[in-house]
Design a protein around this nucleic acid. Structure first.
Lengths: 100, 100
DNA sequence: CAAACATATAAATACATATTCATATGTTTG
DNA sequence: CAAACATATGAATATGTATTTATATGTTTG
């Protein structure tokens, strides 16, 4: 199957997604939210990041619809919103442990 | 399954891989080499990129072992060297077309 | 409604990196 | 071995971006 090349638009979309995944801080945030929805404060405290930094990164992830926030009382809980991406992340997390 | 968080080292490795995938030019190169091993000149001509730019990007991809080059006479043919990554790329290329 | 709390935004800075242009390295063939 | 060819490297530049500090927005509860 020849798998013809993705269009420029699709390539741009994919690259943008990968670019967002390509930062260690954002990746940590995503993996943390992959286990369960997490509040901004919990992310900041658990990952030892400033609240501001977490919020900035969440904005980028939100913008690309990689993450979605649900308000519960004062807090906003973030979770992964793209099944392809969350599945792929779980996969990669598994693969990166193997040394084949 | 709780899926405990990747180590810092694994996170760094993953982020580095994603960072490299997060550039449209590099992604185009990778997709092009995904179909078949391609020479530097063929990549440059087919994707309308300067030979220098292609070579710079290939160096980065080589450094991360995402790509591997085999010399045949004067030319060097590059192909994807990481099965996880090539499989994942083919997957993503497929998924990005669907609008679900 | 005011105080407290949780999250978001703005501006500034320091650092990374994609691209170009020029040149070098290495390989083949006459 | 020299000329031609294919690829790689170096330096320079321009642009992007991660992080910090300070402040604003919005939500809840007393």
């Amino acid at each position: 199957m020849p798998l013809d090349l993705p269009s420029d638009s699709d390539t741009a979309t994919l690259a943008e997604t990968f670019r967002l995944l390509g930062d260690p801080t954002r990746l940590r945030i995503l993996f943390f939210c992959l286990e369960a929805p997490r509040s901004v404060g919990d992310i900041a405290e658990s990952l030892q990041l400033s609240q501001s930094l977490v919020s900035h990164h969440l904005r980028l992830l939100r913008g690309a619809r990689l993450v979605r926030g649900n308000r519960l009382a004062k807090q906003i809980f973030y979770e992964l919103s793209d099944k392809h991406v969350s599945g792929m992340l779980a996969d990669m997390a598994h693969h990166v442990r193997e040394d084949d």
